[in-house]
Design a protein around this nucleic acid. Structure first.
Lengths: 142, 142
DNA sequence: TATTGTTATACTCTATAACTATA
DNA sequence: TATAGTTATAGAGTATAACAATA
């Protein structure tokens, strides 16, 4: 990371991401049984449409057994459903139920309250930096 | 987050941070017994100097029992030492051992390889965005 | 009585290994 | 034989509650 001109940049970035992830996991929408993991997977399915189990696992940066557990939780909640792959009997498609789409819209305002509150303490410039950083963070993941 | 002009911005940012954190946790320096949590706490102590247990827990966004466990691991590895607080017998100062300082310097190049590799796929502009985003992410945590 | 830190305990998240079904 | 997914199991990581020591 030569442009950083900071020998501790990578270390500091890793630490910041870990600490942010702890903060994100800690906040639960108490009256809605949705963990941070489930919200992330739900959002992924909402943005990208149905995926196979392996695709969703890769997107979420976990192994298949981990995403299977998350999927099971969401299926029990009626938010997600499995369906057969059109051409390959081994694969399983995972997609949102109509109920989930409503739930996601209904929860968006409250979920965003997290960032709204934080953003109150940011300048316009800082908010712009954050907005432009998101695609770079996504690129870092892939 | 009005400047985002993207109703899914908060959701996408949360998801990206969770997925990045999974990626960070997954990479272990196999021949050095250091988890991502320990590296983060070690870096914090290196950057900020000795802290009390509660201060370190707050910085790492965990509760005291969690940081106690992490501290115990690092003490066993000889990287960290507890010492009495100068004026308050209830508090415990946590600081790096001289051995840890050497270890941190020795590991920096390899730890940074993570980001170096990722940064190869970023443009100069993207690297600059990332560099400027780090202080904003830190501000988001606090 | 309040605060700091640790211990005891339980729950969540995650991975590896083994298994089943399909290609 | 190889791949997709699940099940079984174990190991981190984390929190709440209870406890000990000090203020």
């Amino acid at each position: 990371m030569s442009p950083a001109a900071d020998p501790q940049f990578a270390s500091t970035l890793r630490s910041a991401i870990l600490r942010l992830s702890r903060q994100i996991r800690a906040q639960r929408l108490v009256d809605v049984e949705l963990t941070a993991n489930q919200m992330s997977a739900l959002g992924a399915l909402a943005r990208h449409g149905p995926m196979t189990v392996t695709e969703l696992a890769a997107y979420e940066q976990v192994k298949p057994p981990s995403i299977t557990r998350t999927i099971n939780c969401m299926v029990e909640s009626g938010l997600v459903e499995r369906s057969p792959h059109p051409t390959d009997g081994r694969q399983v498609m995972v997609g949102l139920t109509p109920h989930a789409e409503k739930t996601i819209v209904a929860l968006r305002a409250r979920r965003d309250a997290w960032l709204e509150e934080k953003a109150d303490h940011l300048s316009a410039t800082e908010r712009d930096v954050l907005r432009r950083a998101l695609p770079v963070l996504e690129k870092l993941i892939g």
